[in-house]
Amino acid sequence: MSGGARRAGHGRDRDVEGRARNARPRDGLGRPLPYGAEGVARQPEGVVRGPAETVREAQRLLDAGMPFHAHEVFEDAWKSGPEGERELWQGLAQLAVGLTHSARGNATGGARLLRRGAGRVAAYADGGGETYGLDVAGLVAWAGELAGRVERRAGGGAGRDAAPPDAATEAPRLTGP
């Protein structure tokens, strides 16, 4: 339960400081499972990593089909990094959450987050800030292409009966080929 506990007599999970914190186990896409079920280990919160370590850890999680967990790594980076990089890390987190929602079958929310994240990340193209070797153009193109596919699936076109995208198969390469 990653530091969380359910208080007897209370309907909400609380962490050791008493803050509301959902302690239910989660699957690889971050969906809550029933209490007592075997889940995927949660990412520890508040971990301060350097940019290269953040990118490596997020890529490992993306490749494992766990974009929800990769989003948490990017969230730590935006919360602990310099203000000037906040949009980059938030955009990357939105790309990961967009993939999460798309893989869960939420085409509308997934496409919206993919496009929003791509817009934030695109601001770093052409010298718009430090990118730590990220393939900004490739990520923007990936997000647009995936968003289009999930929108077509939801829109009733030929792909309507297609399964939601597989998170591991669809995971982007953060640093390019």
Rank of each mutant, 00 (worst) to 15 (best):
118 A>I: 11
168 A>K: 14
131 T>K: 02
11 G>A: 10
167 A>R: 06
89 W>C: 05
73 V>A: 07
133 G>C: 07
44 P>Q: 08
6 R>K: 15
129 G>E: 09
169 T>S: 12
62 L>C: 05
75 E>M: 04
166 D>M: 09
142 W>R: 10
16 V>T: 09
174 L>M: 04
146 L>A: 12
173 R>S: 15
50 G>A: 13
43 Q>G: 03
27 D>C: 02
110 G>F: 07
54 T>W: 10
15 D>T: 12
59 Q>T: 14
92 L>M: 14
122 A>C: 05
160 R>G: 10
72 E>M: 04
3 G>A: 01
125 A>V: 02
95 L>G: 02
62 L>D: 10
52 A>Y: 01
55 V>E: 01
157 G>V: 03
100 T>N: 06
75 E>K: 06
55 V>Q: 00
78 W>Q: 06
173 R>P: 10
37 A>Q: 06
131 T>Y: 00
45 E>A: 11
77 A>Y: 11
18 G>Q: 14
142 W>M: 09
34 P>N: 01
18 G>S: 12
49 R>F: 07
140 V>N: 03
64 A>L: 11
140 V>Q: 01
73 V>E: 15
59 Q>S: 11
25 P>V: 00
29 L>A: 05
146 L>F: 05
99 L>R: 08
41 A>K: 03
149 R>E: 14
22 N>C: 08
165 P>N: 12
28 G>M: 08
109 G>M: 12
30 G>V: 04
161 D>M: 07
133 G>R: 09
31 R>A: 08
23 A>N: 13
89 W>L: 05
54 T>Y: 10
136 V>C: 00
166 D>R: 10
115 R>S: 15
26 R>Y: 07
154 A>E: 10
57 E>M: 07
36 G>P: 08
176 G>I: 12
173 R>M: 09
8 A>L: 13
144 G>Y: 04
85 E>F: 00
13 D>I: 02
172 P>V: 09
75 E>S: 12
90 Q>Y: 05
154 A>T: 04
170 E>D: 15
35 Y>D: 15
156 G>K: 02
157 G>R: 00
71 H>K: 13
52 A>Q: 12
44 P>W: 02
171 A>S: 15
5 A>C: 04
128 G>R: 00
1 M>S: 13
149 R>Q: 14
34 P>L: 04
47 V>A: 06
163 A>L: 12
18 G>K: 14
133 G>I: 05
4 G>Q: 10
140 V>D: 05
7 R>I: 14
91 G>P: 12
56 R>M: 08
158 A>Q: 03
104 R>C: 03
114 L>G: 03
2 S>E: 13
171 A>L: 09
89 W>D: 10
31 R>E: 13
44 P>A: 12
147 A>S: 10
